[in-house]
Amino acid sequence: MKIFLDDERLAPTGWLQVRWPDEVISYLAKGMVTDISLDHDLGDDARGTGYDVLLWIEQAIVDTGFQPPKINVHTSNPAARIRMLAAVEQITRLAEMKSQ
């Protein structure tokens, strides 16, 4: 399953549109996701951002050896993009370390 997290852009064909980080995390926790594409700003920071999904993935790798899906960041927020891409790099390193 491919998950597209965004509050404004429409998901590409073949991707499931979701609006909130907890929805993405629910699918990830069930092991149903092969790819995710994340926006950062979702219109209600109290409900979370795309970065929260990355934090969950990092913690799941450390706690359980979770195998992350392919991750794409499509946010237009420049500062958030830098932070999210750094998190993706960290996720990649953690996953490689856990798989050895």
Score class of each variant (00 low, 15 high):
Lys2Val: 01
Lys2Cys: 00
Ile3Ala: 08
Asp6Gln: 06
Asp6Cys: 07
Asp7Leu: 02
Arg9Leu: 14
Arg9Met: 12
Arg9Tyr: 00
Leu10Arg: 12
Leu10Val: 09
Ala11Glu: 03
Ala11Thr: 07
Ala11Trp: 03
Pro12Phe: 01
Thr13Lys: 14
Trp15Ser: 00
Trp15Pro: 11
Trp15Ile: 08
Leu16Val: 12
Leu16Tyr: 02
Gln17Gly: 03
Val18Cys: 05
Val18Arg: 07
Val18Tyr: 04
Arg19His: 11
Trp20Thr: 13
Asp22Leu: 12
Glu23Lys: 11
Val24Phe: 04
Ile25Phe: 03
Ser26Phe: 11
Ser26Thr: 12
Ala29Gly: 15
Lys30Val: 00
Gly31Lys: 08
Met32Glu: 14
Met32Gly: 00
Met32Lys: 13
Met32Trp: 10
Thr34Phe: 00
Asp35Ala: 09
Ile36Pro: 08
Ser37Thr: 06
Ser37Asp: 10
Leu38Asn: 04
Leu38Phe: 04
Leu38Ile: 07
Asp39His: 02
Leu42Asp: 10
Asp44Trp: 04
Asp45Pro: 13
Ala46Asp: 14
Ala46Trp: 05
Ala46Pro: 00
Arg47Cys: 02
Gly48His: 11
Thr49Asp: 06
Thr49Ile: 00
Gly50Val: 09
Gly50Leu: 08
Gly50Asp: 04
Asp52Leu: 11
Asp52Asn: 14
Val53Trp: 08
Val53Thr: 12
Val53Cys: 14
Leu54Asp: 11
Leu54Tyr: 09
Leu54Phe: 06
Leu55Tyr: 01
Trp56Tyr: 13
Glu58Ser: 13
Glu58Trp: 01
Glu58Asp: 06
Gln59Pro: 00
Ile61Val: 15
Val62Arg: 15
Val62Leu: 13
Val62Tyr: 04
Thr64Ile: 01
Thr64Arg: 14
Thr64Cys: 02
Thr64Leu: 05
Thr64Met: 03
Gly65Asn: 09
Gly65Asp: 07
Phe66Leu: 04
Phe66Ser: 05
Gln67Met: 06
Pro68Phe: 07
Lys70Tyr: 02
Lys70His: 12
Ile71Tyr: 06
Ile71Asn: 08
Asn72Ser: 14
Asn77Val: 03
Ala79Cys: 00
Ile82Lys: 15
Arg83Asp: 09
Arg83Gly: 03
Arg83Leu: 13
Met84Ile: 05
Met84Ala: 05
Met84Tyr: 04
Leu85Glu: 15
Leu85Gln: 14
Ala87Lys: 15
Val88Met: 11
Glu89Asn: 15
Glu89Thr: 14
Glu89Tyr: 11
Gln90Ile: 09
Ile91Asn: 11
Leu94Val: 05
Leu94Ile: 04
Ala95Ser: 15
Ala95Glu: 00
Ala95Phe: 05
Ala95Gln: 08
Ala95Leu: 03
Lys98Ile: 00
Ser99Gly: 04
Ser99Met: 07
Ser99Lys: 15
Gln100Ser: 11
